[in-house]
Amino acid sequence: MPYYRCVVPRDSVPYDQRAEVARAFTDIHCGSTGAPRSFVHVVFDEHDDRWDTPYFLDGGNRAGRPEELKAQLLNDLMSAFREITGVSSDEFSGRITEGPASWTMEGGMVLPEPGEETAEWYEHDLQSQAAAGG
């Protein structure tokens, strides 16, 4: 977590835009929450059927953050997506659902609750980035 799934029409978002959206989402999420960068997952899921809107952001985060922060985060993510892809507001909708951090293990550690992250957790992120050459 976080896990951001961008549901998009087939062949509508080229690789360069997908990569830019992924970087933007990572910047926004980490800037808003302080989470380590290596914990931000962004995937693109192409579809042939029309949903309520052709483009949809389906996010999954750790529960426990203030409502204002969550609303701002979703707004910022959707703004970035629209800016990068050129998709209009009426073509794009989104949501962020939440689950207990303790239900997920990442990097061999059970995720901490928001606000309860330890120095060890961030240190692990730095080690992961170094190992990946980042």
Binding site: R18, A19, V42, F44, G134
Partner: peptide, 18 residues
Amino acid sequence: DIPTGFGFRGGEPSTTSL
């Protein structure tokens, strides 16, 4: 499977399984 070029982690192409 997530097709190559469709999955990212930390803003970079991902090799992660979920």
